[in-house]
Design a binder for these strands. Structure first.
Lengths: 210, 210
DNA sequence: GCGTGTGAAACCATTCACAGCT
DNA sequence: AGCTGTGAATGGTTTCACACGC
């Protein structure tokens, strides 16, 4: 099955709100209501879900709990994905200590750096490994996703090692376009670019302004 | 003129690489070369630029310096945009102290919080104002963009005040879909959603895998 | 009656292909 | 010869509209 990136992006948003609805004790939700929460059209919600099956009940909407479970299954969130952080600088350390991960079903199972004075030391309760040992350690720990918080100058090289070790999902914080095999999905978080984009709209250039 | 969000997003990427090329002393660059740097097709680069004018020289490519300047003008980066940070928690403070802003042409001119024990105190050299005074202070300081690092529970309310004060661009770190007038552009940075999306691809679900 | 699921239509973005300039 | 700028064609995503089930 081929589903667009856009759809996957939205599924993670639906999941967020389903979780809140679940906590509030809501049992059923219509595509209309869910759409209004995430700021989309109802048809969009239905179409996105339809790529994976029929989760709703005609006339009633979607059962919150079961839809949540279904999306968790699609996204592979059930079994607690194992994550590695590569680059133990300020950002990397902050992320390594971020409590929110567990709640989301992610577990940081290994951290890596290349500098001799970090390797072997403990950060946030985890031993820092040598990047050179990435393949070996990541195999042993069962790493499935990698967060890259290394400097721009080396990120391409590191990404290649990570890809070579068979990792299929990378979250990259360096402001560099990573060149990796197509089978690997890279998402970028880049504060600088985000700000530059926004600057355009700060001038009032909204495509569909009221 | 109406230009798509996608185009604006890419312009900020072009800008990044033009800056690097400039530092390297490169004088001219072809759409082909620039495209390869950002991981796109040459036609895409040319089309994006064509929405705003003709910046290239036939047979030679684009002059790095003048293209960089042109994009800076489009994105409104020339005059040093004034930014406010609302929400002085861990993340807000980290951002307030982030040196990279200046280099990008952004200036943090005000910080805000609602808690009585923060208001009036100095953080990273800036006095923390009361959110209740947002309109007044932001007018006085000439704030053009706002970064929201407040808790999810209050972010919608805060966003409304910000929008009401006439701000047209918001960067939101809370995992909540903000409901604001269409004239206001909101970009979200949400680590949790980013990870959930990636989880899907960690399973090897790449649409166009090799 | 209300709300899902889904083909078909409309819309938007990307890619192609080439004319035109240096 | 090389590369830009851009209409036209293609491909993809969103929206419409309606049949069907509760």
């Amino acid at each position: 099955m081929k589903v667009s990136d856009r759809t996957i992006e939205r599924l993670s948003l639906y999941y967020r709100y389903l979780y809140i609805l679940f906590q509030q004790g809501t049992q059923f939700i219509s595509s209309k209501h869910l759409a209004s929460l995430v700021g989309l059209k109802p048809e969009q919600v239905r179409k996105d879900l339809s790529y994976f099956g029929s989760f709703g009940r005609t006339g009633k909407g979607y059962e919150v709990v079961s839809l949540q479970r279904a999306i968790a299954k699609i996204l592979g969130l059930e079994q607690g994905r194992k994550v590695a952080i590569v680059g133990v600088g300020n950002l990397g350390m902050a992320l390594a200590g971020y409590k929110g991960f567990e709640a989301l079903g992610f577990r940081i199972v290994a951290i890596f750096d290349s500098s001799a004075n970090k390797i072997g030391k403990k950060y946030k309760g985890k031993v820092c490994h040598d990047i050179a040992d990435f393949k070996e350690v990541s195999k042993k720990e069962g790493v499935e996703m990698v967060i890259l918080t290394v400097p721009s100058e080396v990120v391409q090289e590191v990404a290649q090692s990570v890809a070579a070790a068979g990792i299929k999902a990378i979250l990259n914080f360096a402001p560099v376009n990573l060149n990796v095999p197509k089978a690997v999905k890279v998402n970028n978080i880049d504060l600088a670019s985000e700000l530059k984009r926004l600057s355009y709209y700060a001038q009032g250039n909204r495509k569909d302004a009221d």
